[in-house]
Amino acid sequence: METVMVAWMFDSLLGLGLLWLAWQSLACSDLFKAIVLFIAFGLLMALAWVRLEAPDVALAEAAIGAGLTGALLMVALAQLQSIETNGDAAVATVKKGHCIRPLQWLLLIALSLMATGLGYVIISFPAHVPGLSTAVATHLEASGVSNPVTAVLLNFRGYDTLLELVVLLLALLGVWSLGGTVPQQTTTPAPLVLEALTRLLVPMLILTAAYLLWVGAHAPGGAFQAGSVLAAAGVLLLLIGRHPRAALMALPLRLILVLGPATFVAMAVVTMLIEGALLKFPPEHAGKLILLLETTAMLSIGATLAALFLGGRRHTDKEHS
């Protein structure tokens, strides 16, 4: 009884904290503060996923939602500020732009109605719905892995993951095609402490990524979590000014970026021809095939996220200077 009470109190605090952080992050006029609040929101969200017994999602939320998205927002803010100091009025108006009041009220009412509807739907659900978990459990044997989440993501619903990889790639292409970003002007050497920290952390991050990838077969982990850890190593290296050489930025980077999606598509075509269905793996080889898919996906995800952090900067450096 006591533990139920404590858990209930903890969950309520967590829920209220999430709502408050979300509100503060949106309502805050200082963009830097809003980003910090957003990162805190991501960390609490990861905790909420743990409470919902979804450690796979919690890992992904902490690594991508809080960590890498935070870094991306920070770098975007830095670029925004350097554009502003260069006297670009358009950005300033976007930042200060505010809606008309009646429209806000209309939005508030519409969103409240939607939230109430969604809340009602959730409450009206029976407490325990098996959903597809029994179907997954009965076929887990044939999936080649023993972690049901990995089985669903890479085997039963493999095309979802394929499309997710393509979405990531498209996001990077979008950033690249925007171009015109401000070249980085600060060439001051990175702080020694940051450099020492990076030297210590990067090998550890690579090891952690490999561990997450391997452990994904039977416990929480997998390509997305491992890829974002790799990307974190890339972000650290970029922060201390270890930019990859221009020769590496051209073809090799592009090859790594498409490696994951390309392997996935090739696998889809081959399984279509042999097994007669998209991404239907023969059970005796499924484990190895999934590991291959996850490894290539991890490399691509890591490279894509790190390249997103780098933004269009290097690209424009090369063409304009």
Partner: peptide
């Protein structure tokens, strides 16, 4: 150990 390492380094960087 990792939190101590990161915490000390980040505190230094913020102060710097």
């Amino acid at each position: 150990l990792l939190v101590m390492l990161a915490g000390a380094s980040v505190a230094h960087l913020v102060a710097r």
